[in-house]
């Protein structure tokens, strides 16, 4: 399981920029950023190199931040790879809340971030299907303070 930061953002000018600047100023690097938006607010989902530090910085500046545990499937960067992952989950009847992908820097592998209802079951299903799941330490230092 990997820790993703979810940041509640009011739909205001410059709010996302402010969040990114704070992380940038502290030398925190994002691997991935996705914003789920509604008319009134958005939720930014962030995978970064030091999630605990990032959470601390953002909370000190008044952002509402929560940590969400997500699965990170490692797949080759080729057509149909994500479809394989999703079909495995679907076949096992596992509901997907959301998914997004990013490329691992300097490699030909893609990372599929999966938020599912039953993470334990999904882990078994994906492992049985030969799909590798990344450990937190392969994305960031899980022991950082």
């Amino acid at each position: 399981m990997v820790e993703q930061l979810s940041v509640f953002l009011a739909n205001e000018h410059g709010r996302l920029a402010r969040m990114c600047r704070l992380l940038g100023n502290c030398g925190l690097n994002m691997h991935s950023l996705v914003v789920a938006d509604t008319a009134e607010y958005g939720v930014a989902r962030v995978i970064c190199d030091r999630p605990h530090a990032a959470r601390g910085v953002l909370e000190r500046e008044g952002f509402a931040v929560s940590v969400t545990h997500v699965l990170a499937a490692q797949v080759p960067d080729r057509p149909g790879a994500l479809a394989d992952v999703l079909e495995s989950l679907d076949a096992a009847g596992i509901n997907l809340e959301y998914v997004y992908c990013f490329l691992k820097p300097d490699s030909s592998t893609a990372v599929d971030i999966l938020r599912v209802e039953d993470a334990e079951h999904a882990t078994e299903v994906l492992t049985a299907a030969g799909i590798g799941l990344l450990h937190a330490s392969e994305i960031y230092d899980p022991d950082e303070i």
């Binding site: 993703q4 979810s6 509640f8 509604t38 939720v43 989902r45 509402a64 929560s66 959301y98 938020r115």
Partner: peptide, 15 residues
């Protein structure tokens, strides 16, 4: 105000 106790990762949770 969205408090620290709100699990707001999913939009449907907020809704």
């Amino acid at each position: 105000e969205v408090g620290p106790d709100v699990a707001f990762d999913e939009i449907r949770g907020l809704e």
